[in-house]
Amino acid sequence: MEIAATCILPGTCRGQLLTTRQPISFWGCVDPVTGHISDKRHELFGETVSEKVLVFPFGKGSSTGSLMILELLRLNLAPAAIINIRTEPLLATGPVVGKHFYEKTFPIVNVDESDFELLKTGIYAEIVSRKNGSYIRI
């Protein structure tokens, strides 16, 4: 099935979904050297974000997260894509800088809250993020 999405950062990819209802801070929640969720209280504790399509409602916490995403990109440990309900500029900064500085980036799309429920962990999805039309195929 195809889910309508809004392009935040353009790109296309295919990957396995890793989904949480909890917000994620890339500083404090994710270890930039391994790509694992390092916050014990997070329901995804121990999972790796690398090459996954990471699905969470929105970001939280420290403004250092963008740098952590740049490091994940530098080390080729970044997620394949991010799907949010809302993406704040702070979260988009890492992949935007990554594109200009390391020529490495990943797409980000937004979906409606009702469609968010369809995006279950483990499903393979194709993400097409374009300014003139975006979708997620699961």
Partner: peptide
């Protein structure tokens, strides 16, 4: 400027 902590090499490189 927030980017003052040394945590990862990407920051120093930038």
């Amino acid at each position: 400027i927030d980017m003052t902590l040394y945590m990862v090499d990407a920051g120093v490189e930038f």
